[in-house]
Design a protein around this nucleic acid. Structure first.
Lengths: 211, 211
DNA sequence: CTGTGTTCAAAACATACGTTTCAAACATAC
DNA sequence: GTATGTTTGAAACGTATGTTTTGAACACAG
């Protein structure tokens, strides 16, 4: 990030600020001044603030969903059994490991996802669903094979619940870490939390369906 | 809401708009014009927009946490066993039933909570934790008695995961309903979702803790 | 009535925002 | 070296926001 081009400096900075303070609360002036570029550069290179936001997500999600697709390919090729642990484990290791050189990057990833999902009118959510829905659906099919006794409709919602648990928790990690520290005098990392998440989600996903 | 006072008309309208579009995206002018009151009324009665937001939450959460406390009292008095189903069931029935005359109110409740939690800098989250942390802690103690084999620290995080699943899902219900309708051609209500949520959360909360 | 404190209404204020403009600087090809 | 297309810089534009001001309308006690 030291001497990257204007476009990348904008993306790097916007990514951090968006994750930190949200989309509406982050002004282009805040981004450009912190990035050391001119204010007009955003509209010149991206067209609008909205387009900047989408560009930030694209840079994040395109490699992620590609890697996820590759991992699913590998799983099918090697005949790895479709267990909830295996399927969810792939996602977590990927989310935590997309940028191993920068551990904070994972937190930014989740916070950004949370921002996108909780975005009120939800056009970003629709955008994500449209561009990355295919990989997501594939993931869900593997999960379905892992828990065949759970009806598809039920599984759909359980995946949503899981998404909520993951994104919500990771996206609010800062405050939660402070509370956890106050109540238990313990520090936790994103990796810690995901390690705790896995059994919780597996338990929820394969729970018995009432009558 | 027909001919209530200015203060209540502002609160009623702000509540709906905040839930619909978020805090930053809802202007005082939008609130006051829809409420049919003068723009200056907000600053006159509440002091600032920030104070308005807190007032909206207070009107919501004070009765809710009081009712929750009462239900927990009742549970202790009648000796109802501390099972995950019982404890979580209380919360859900309460959240869905605080205003039986207005079923949409429950959705607003969850959407507002989601907005508060995903609020970037999290001062609202801190505010909530400060004002309603006591009832929350009591709830957690009951849960702890329900699953004594889960260490407190682990349970703390599982409650956070559950919160995430609930708030995140309910707060994004609109979009999710559309997806669910497209993929399964089925309508779902908030009550439907919570019915599906309960076994998921119970399964997650009482899952085995790895080594 | 009269006076006093409260509430409302209309307008103005100050500020911050996204966006646009336009000229200068730069790079690259001819 | 000049010309051309691209990128940057500084400033301005138009708009929307939260807030403040000022005075009128009102309620009600003395």
């Amino acid at each position: 990030m030291a001497q990257a081009g204007t476009v990348d400096r904008i993306l790097d900075t916007a990514e951090v600020l968006f994750a930190q303070k949200g989309f509406a609360e982050t002004s282009l002036r805040a981004i450009t001044s912190k990035a050391g570029v001119n204010l007009a550069a955003v509209n010149y290179h991206f067209g609008s603030k909205e387009a900047l936001i989408q560009a930030v997500f694209e840079r994040f999600l395109t490699p992620f969903s590609a890697a996820l697709g590759a991992k699913l390919d590998e799983m099918e090729a090697t005949g790895t059994p479709d267990t909830p642990e295996n399927v969810l484990g792939i996602v977590f290791r990927l989310a935590l490991g997309t940028h191993p050189e920068d551990p904070q990057r994972a937190a930014i990833f989740f916070r950004l996802s949370g921002q996108a999902y909780s975005q009120p009118q939800g056009h970003l959510r629709d955008y994500l669903h449209k561009h990355y829905g295919a990989v997501f659906k594939r993931l869900q099919e593997h999960l379905q094979r892992a828990v065949p006794s759970v009806p598809p409709m039920e599984l759909f919602w359980r995946v949503q619940f899981s998404l909520g648990a993951v994104i919500f928790t990771l996206s609010g990690m800062q405050s939660l870490q402070a509370i956890s520290k106050a109540d238990f005098n313990l520090d936790v990392s994103a990796a810690d939390i995901t390690r705790r998440l896995l059994p919780f989600l597996v338990g929820g996903i394969q729970a018995d369906v009432p009558e």
